[in-house]
Design a protein around this nucleic acid. Structure first.
Length: 359
DNA sequence: TCTGGGGTCCTAGGACCC
DNA sequence: TCTGGGGTCCTAGGACCC
């Protein structure tokens, strides 16, 4: 075929994934403001999972309380989150990606994945991926092309919607250099503020920042990592090693704050049962627990406890109730979360990916 | 009218040991 | 009276991502 096949990282990201899946099922909603969140009831405590482009024009965005979203876009259709439907659509998308020639697929979530491919024309390859996904699933996606995972991931944003964009060592600073550090994958509002306090506001400034300053401010791992991020460097090879969950957790936000110890105890028992279902489905034991408590209005505390490896539900429940015994009495509770930690197989972890969200 | 639910990884500080 | 230096394990909390 060709004489010049190189290795490229492609980052595939579905456009408006959740809203798009809903429109596939409800074609009459096409072109209308659409909000998906919670149980679809804007009077409940819940947030927006996805807003269609039409809804975004009203200032609605994901993460926004559903109540506020409904007020901003009063004519929007509000649908409940249907995780099963999105999981099914996602599986179709990922299966399509895996059929691409010589592609290594690293799934990042419902609606995105890295592809490692060998090609002399990554743009043409990306266009074929888009066509295949559209044909098989009816969904549109954008694709970022890069020589590192970070650059491919960031490139996708410039391709949206339905486009393809390439970011490499060659054009990274030209495109990203003047942008704020918060535009980087893995830099949020807190980190960008701490960087700014050191006079580091842009990607270019981060790229050339004094490593000693970064290490002092952020520690021996994160300091060097942020420096790499500023340069767009990092992992260059897509890793399709099957993902193994470190743990499972369940959270509940109560529509009415809990005030009675008996209510808390019942809630902890319920969470324990759900978490143990997820753990048991994998056939692995539990080695630790974290109880998260959100007191009204918004103060979160966590309590952790290591436990001897066990598969006995009664032991786990007793440990969870033991943690719950440390909850401050008399304060209204808005949210409870329980996480069970599971033992991990021995494996060397090389490199650092900011998030390896599960699948 | 306040802020979901599921994850990952890192850091700091105390306890404890030699 | 003063109080090393290295290591591990554990808990609490922070930050980020989809």
């Amino acid at each position: 075929m060709s004489h010049n096949r190189e290795y490229w990282v492609l980052h595939v990201d579905l456009d408006q994934f959740i809203a798009a899946v809903e429109v596939l099922r409800h074609p009459e909603l096409a072109g209308k403001p659409l909000i998906v969140g919670g149980r679809g009831d804007p009077t409940e405590r819940a947030v927006v999972s996805t807003a269609s482009y039409e809804a975004r024009e009203f200032g609605v965005g994901s993460g926004m309380p559903l109540r506020i979203a409904a007020r901003k876009a009063p004519d929007a259709v509000i649908l409940p989150v249907d995780a099963e439907a999105y999981t099914a659509a996602s599986a179709q998308v990922m299966a399509t990606l895996r059929t691409q020639p010589d592609a290594t697929v690293q799934v990042l979530g419902w609606d995105e994945a890295f592809l490692g491919v060998q090609t002399d024309d990554p743009e043409a390859y990306a266009r074929r991926v888009q066509a295949a996904v559209l044909e098989r699933t009816g969904l549109h996606c954008s694709i970022g092309i890069g020589d590192t995972l970070v650059r491919a991931k960031v490139a996708t944003g410039f391709g949206k919607p339905r486009g393809v964009f390439r970011l490499t060592a060659e054009n990274w600073l030209e495109i990203m250099g003047d942008r704020p550090t918060v535009d980087l994958w893995g830099v949020g509002s807190r980190i960008s503020a701490r960087l700014a306090a050191h006079g580091i506001a842009t990607v270019a400034e981060l790229a050339t920042a004094d490593p000693a300053v970064l290490a002092t401010e952020f520690g021996p791992k994160m300091g060097p990592w942020y420096g790499l991020l500023g340069r767009g460097e990092g992992e260059r090879v897509v890793d399709d090693t099957p993902w193994v969950a470190r743990g499972h957790s369940r959270e509940t936000t109560f529509q009415q704050d809990l005030t009675e110890p008996a209510q808390v105890e019942a809630a902890v028992r319920g969470l324990t049962a759900k978490v143990l279902e997820d753990v048991a489905a994998e056939g692995r034991p539990v080695i630790g627990l974290t109880l998260k408590v959100r007191y009204a209005p918004f103060i979160t505390k966590t309590m952790q406890r290591k436990i001897a490896e066990t598969r006995d539900p009664a032991v786990v429940e007793a440990a969870a109730l033991g943690l719950a015994g440390r909850i401050e009495p008399g304060r209204p509770i808005r949210l409870l979360g329980l996480r069970a930690e599971m033992p991990m197989p021995e494996k060397a972890r090389e490199g650092h990916t900011p998030t390896r969200s599960g699948w």
